[in-house]
Design a protein around this nucleic acid. Structure first.
Ligand code: NAD
Ligand code: NAD
Lengths: 210, 210
DNA sequence: TTAAAATAGATATAAATATATCTTAATTTA
DNA sequence: TAAATTAAGATATATTTATATCTATTTTAA
């Protein structure tokens, strides 16, 4: 069952996933006032093959100079633009427990265009309070809150047992992209994109390979 | 640059990564007192292809019955055994900030054999205190603490800027597996396994595909 | 001024991963 | 009891992803 949603772009998902680490290297180069950087240098910093880096960067439309490399500033802009990280994205966090709180407190998101505009929880202990400047609302206020404000991403960090029912509520309110940190496989309509962040699958790799 | 460390097992990394979600389905089936479960059923629950599920399950050595499926209990044991989730793993958390705290508080790890035995931080505010029953020590006590206790996994949740230097300390103390939640590409010797948990790469997929 | 070296970009190949097809065994039901 | 059905398991194929090779361009230096 091929997921069409992830294949609308002329770049493979592995390529998209590597771009942020290139951006890290490039931003650092920019801080060090480097004017140009070659794919070879990026590759060696990240222990990748130069060919792969060049091919990945090509999807952003960047054009480099043989024997020189890419203009650092231009390359940074090309990647950020390709990733849409030069535009603002509105996000909400649903479930402000341990993990939800950690994600709200992470400054790396804002740096790449993601603004957590507010959060939702079902616990009376949390509703009405703020977490690092982010207001927490009751889940039943969701529809009302999102009526006038279009949300780009819902970050789902509720207990796995309620994940599906909360998801259905999110979809009712028009959410089209869900970043799912729960262990639940979410059932959603065709036009809703779910990205699963599955820590247990990473732990599996560690357990098997050690 | 092929990473040999991940290719010592006769299962591909994608296969290993899918096994935990099969286990979720199977554990639920066991709770519902089901005796047998077919690959087809697992596949439909997870929106995967039956062929893929069967092929994945085959790496665990499980043998099913045509027209019937797999014995649920046997299948659960086979996966847990393959993943080494039936054995105990000792882990430490290094950096008890937002994310480190969230990971310490996550019960899903213990359920799969991972015990966080203690944590380390450099902040005097945290050293000597407990986080959900887990003692926090100073980073300079690391060597001393790990002298007698072999650690299977170090969970790295320090600020990215100090990630490399903390990693070097971990390696000095004999750590061989690092679960890296920082944005830093860690430079480690051949025999040290690093698994990168890169949230920005997931965010990139969301940003591009929406 | 010209040869050598390094690197982008294009094209071709290889490796890894996923999917399809076929065969055989277990079960149900006509 | 035999035919139909379903699913595992094996083999074959297709797709995706990564890597290698080749060419052209730019720079450096002999
Ligand atoms: N903490 C981790 O490191 C970690 C790791 C892997 C996966 N996860 C998954 O992430 C999710 C959250 O984990 P956590 O550790 O933050 O759990 P948590 O219990 O700390 O937080 C869950 C939060 O969700 C809220 N909540 C409960 N029901 C709700 C509902 N119906 N609507 C809205 N909010 C509701 C609770 O009040 C709580 O604040 C879980 O599904 C967990 O399996 C967490
Ligand atoms: N919070 C998130 O959701 C999130 C998301 C993606 C990535 N990350 C990454 O995870 C890491 C931790 O994030 P966080 O939000 O928990 O940060 P944080 O600032 O809340 O926590 C960092 C902790 O590390 C400790 N620390 C600092 N220097 C140390 C040292 N040399 N040795 C030991 N401990 C030290 C600090 O005292 C603090 O407790 C960062 O690298 C961050 O980029 C976090």
């Amino acid at each position: 069952m091929k997921n069409k949603k992830f294949s609308q772009i002329d770049a493979s998902v592995p390529t998209i996933r590597r771009l942020p680490s290139y951006l890290n290297v490039i931003r650092r180069a920019l801080n060090n006032n480097l004017k140009v950087i070659s794919g070879t240098v990026i590759a060696s910093e990240l222990e990748l093959e130069p060919i792969q880096v060049r091919k990945d960067l090509a999807v952003t439309g960047i054009v480099g100079k043989p024997r020189v490399g890419y203009d650092v500033k231009e390359l940074k802009n090309a990647i950020e633009s390709f990733l849409n990280w030069d535009k603002q994205h509105k996000a909400i966090v649903v479930g402000t427990g341990n993990l939800g709180t950690a994600l709200i407190g992470y400054p790396g998101f804002k740096q790449n265009g993601m603004n957590i505009v507010c959060a939702f929880d079902s616990s009376v202990d949390k509703i009405g309070k703020q977490i690092l400047g982010v207001e927490v609302y009751g889940l039943k206020d969701l529809k009302d809150k999102l009526k006038n404000e279009k949300i780009d991403i819902a970050i789902l960090t509720v207990p796995s047992e309620v994940a599906q029912q909360v998801t259905e509520l999110l979809i009712e309110t028009g959410v089209k992209s869900i970043w799912n940190f729960t262990n639940e496989k979410l059932k959603v309509p065709e036009d809703v994109l779910v990205l699963r962040e599955d820590l247990s699958s990473s732990y599996a790799v560690l357990s098997v390979c050690q």
